[in-house]
């Protein structure tokens, strides 16, 4: 729940926002645009901060759908039957979507990214926000202080109790290597063998290998586990609702919130215009306050309420402890490691 003061602040920020400018001689307006996203609280915030105003100003109706599905995106593009005008994609898929030619290039004439973070400058992917895979724990399980690093996460003697990690190699290999002493700078290319060896040590202490984003936070609240990895926004939401949880940024693995206009989509101009509405730093700040995902505009952080800033991934003190996921490395190696991951899980069952 947002407090009344925050609502007031967000409203004030929205009123202060500049109107989206439209150029002369633009293509005809469609009746509606299909905007595919993750759904839930995310789309509610996107509506409140970006889409409602866009609808009002252009008269174009934004129809939101979910879930995010890379396979479906590919099927649409390859069959030439593209029903989405805009879709979100997974944070690790930005490089792959470009390589596979599934997205239209971002039109710099419509979307100004000159003051965006360097990680948000991809040719075909628009990233207005970012999130991080971090660890989160129940402080009541660790009276002498919680884990401060991936090495602590692996230290089941000092920090006993069941854990939860994602049932997926992305993030876990990074965490394992950092726990094993690899520095953030020397992380990529990943030493896969070493990572799996390190994962062997933690496997039997992982009670749940989660598969959906809301699982880890719920597992912590239910006391099913005492320590979990997860996306910072999911923990942020519960912490703001005063759940007894603590997030640790050290070793967090950052990813871009990513949006594309599918290759061959209709009404591309207006799709780019929609994305452009999401480039405004003040709007990004308002969105970040609700979802916990930092805006990628360099000015965005300064518009966030001061007490919330330390809870966001790009807050300078947090940022320096984290590392950006190497999308390119995962695009090249993902399938092969996915198979190895399955085999590894199977060998443990």
């Amino acid at each position: 729940m947002r407090t009344r003061r925050e609502v007031l602040a967000a409203t004030a920020a929205a009123l202060a926002m500049p109107k989206v400018a439209f150029a002369e001689g633009e293509p005809p307006k469609p009746k509606q645009l299909i905007f595919n996203a993750s759904g839930g609280s995310q789309i509610a915030s996107l509506r409140e901060n970006y889409l409602n105003d866009f609808e009002k100003e252009t008269g174009i109706k934004i129809v939101d759908t979910s879930p995010v599905d890379f396979g479906k995106l590919r099927a649409m593009v390859e069959s030439g039957n593209v029903s989405w005008n805009i879709t979100e994609i997974g944070g690790q898929d930005g490089y792959r979507v470009t390589e596979m030619g599934l997205a239209e290039p971002i039109d710099a004439k419509i979307i100004d990214r000159s003051k965006f973070q360097p990680q948000a400058q991809m040719s075909h992917v628009f990233s207005p926000s970012c999130y991080s895979t971090v660890m989160c724990y129940r402080p009541d399980a660790f009276p002498k202080g919680g884990p401060k690093s991936w090495a602590d996460f692996w230290d089941v003697k000092a920090f006993p109790g069941p854990r939860s990690m994602r049932n997926h190699p992305v993030d876990n290999l990074e965490a394992a290597l950092i726990a094993d002493g690899v520095t953030l700078e020397a992380l990529y290319p990943l030493d896969v063998d070493r990572a799996f060896r390190k994962l062997d040590a933690i496997h039997k202490h992982v009670n749940v290998w989660w598969s959906t984003g809301q699982q880890p936070a719920q597992l912590l609240v239910d006391k099913e586990v005492v320590l979990a990895t997860g996306w910072n926004g999911r923990f942020y939401d519960l912490i703001r609702k005063e759940a007894p949880l603590v997030m640790e940024w050290n070793g967090g693995i950052l990813k871009q919130g990513s949006w594309v206009v599918p290759k061959g989509a209709k009404d591309q101009y207006w799709a780019m215009k929609t994305l452009a509405a999401m480039a405004d730093p003040k709007r990004q700040a308002a969105n970040a306050e609700i979802l916990g995902y930092s805006g990628m505009h360099l000015d965005s952080n300064q518009y966030v309420a001061e007490k919330i800033r330390p809870l966001l991934p790009l807050y300078p003190d947090n940022l320096k402890k984290q590392v950006w996921l190497d999308q390119k490395w995962w695009t090249v190696n993902g399938a092969q490691i996915g198979e190895r991951w399955n085999k590894w899980m199977l060998s443990k069952a």
């Binding site: 009670n207 399955n342 899980m345 069952a349």
Partner: peptide, 10 residues
């Protein structure tokens, strides 16, 4: 299986 198996049942 995904929800009750804790990811360990494939």
């Amino acid at each position: 299986p995904a929800l009750l198996g804790g990811g360990k049942v494939m």
